[in-house]
Design a protein around this nucleic acid. Sequence first.
DNA 1: GTTCAAAAGTTGAGTCATTGCACGTTCTTA
DNA 2: TAAGAACGTGCAATGACTCAACTTTTGAAC
Lengths: 193, 193
Amino acid sequence: MTEPLGRRERKKAQTRQALADAALRLFLERGYDQVGVKDVADAADVSVTTLFKHFPSKEALVFDQEDDIEAALVAAVRDRPAGQTILDALRQHVLPAGGRPRDPEMATFVELVENTPALRDYAHRMWMRHEAALARVIAEEIGAPEDDLTCAALARFALEIRNLTRGHPDPRRAGDALFTLLDRGWSALHPNT
Amino acid sequence: MTEPLGRRERKKAQTRQALADAALRLFLERGYDQVGVKDVADAADVSVTTLFKHFPSKEALVFDQEDDIEAALVAAVRDRPAGQTILDALRQHVLPAGGRPRDPEMATFVELVENTPALRDYAHRMWMRHEAALARVIAEEIGAPEDDLTCAALARFALEIRNLTRGHPDPRRAGDALFTLLDRGWSALHPNT
DNA sequence: GTTCAAAAGTTGAGTCATTGCACGTTCTTA
DNA sequence: TAAGAACGTGCAATGACTCAACTTTTGAAC
């Protein structure tokens, strides 16, 4: 489906990839704040303006493929198995799997993001940006008005659980406890949802 | 207690006040994004560098007296009446009083902050910055380890309630419902706290 | 009363991320 | 194939923020 690309689009994707690769390499070598966008552009052999045509900001250089996350989140709630509550669906989708794969490349990437305030904040904002969509699908599922505040609160709290458990020795167990906390309050307001 | 100020400190406070006044006036006149820090500095008859010696950022120009909020927050939990739960103490302290005083000057200020993304985000960050202190005092009060995750979560969720209810027609009632949600889950984990 | 050195205020000249404007190249359409 | 639209690219600018040096104020020693 993505095969028939013209030369132009192929070169565009190539340039984009070169920028992302150069950025990640330089950031890991020297640290995010010690690398300017000029350095990244030079390493990819393009001008700074071209860099910003491909990425909306310096932070976005390290978050390359952040596309279908919102759709997957909404689908996890809307298409949950029959009989499963909304909170259990969120619990399974938001919390990471128990044993970590320990991909070494991913590990250094996560370390870079965690140790760089600008990147940590950016990742947080990107993740919380899905709150509105999540709140909307929750309201639909329980038949509440679209702007129901408890749905917005549940969406925000559930998303924040991932941020809270990040860096914890056992994120799965910790997240479970927090989802249980939310579940007790939520099921009192909206039983069997 | 703050009377014996030397000429120097008096002039410093005077410059600071002139900057804050000029900034608020210009922001309300032309809009936050249409005013540069240069304009504010010129209006107060100082250089841009001097402006940044008094305020750490452009956003900070409008949040002049944000000092003892964290202390009051911690005190509200630690010095709550005997027999009152932590969540009830937070509910009373975080939620605004029912009838609004309708101070016209404050109203235009709130409107400016709400309608300016940069200021809205800054106010949010400033408010959430108290999460760590709040989490610490909650952990102390229930005798949990200082880095207990459920305490951090309760602190974050309680603070977020204020952000969620902002702009709602009846913040008091809406906030009450959300605190009740948290209360059910929390009292199951830590009864009578 | 004068001097002097540390502390604090002030400044102009910079740095860095980000964005209009203009030019050349590539793709489309007739 | 040639005009015209759309796109990639670079130069130069803008706006927030910082740095090294200069000036003023303060407090005490002489």
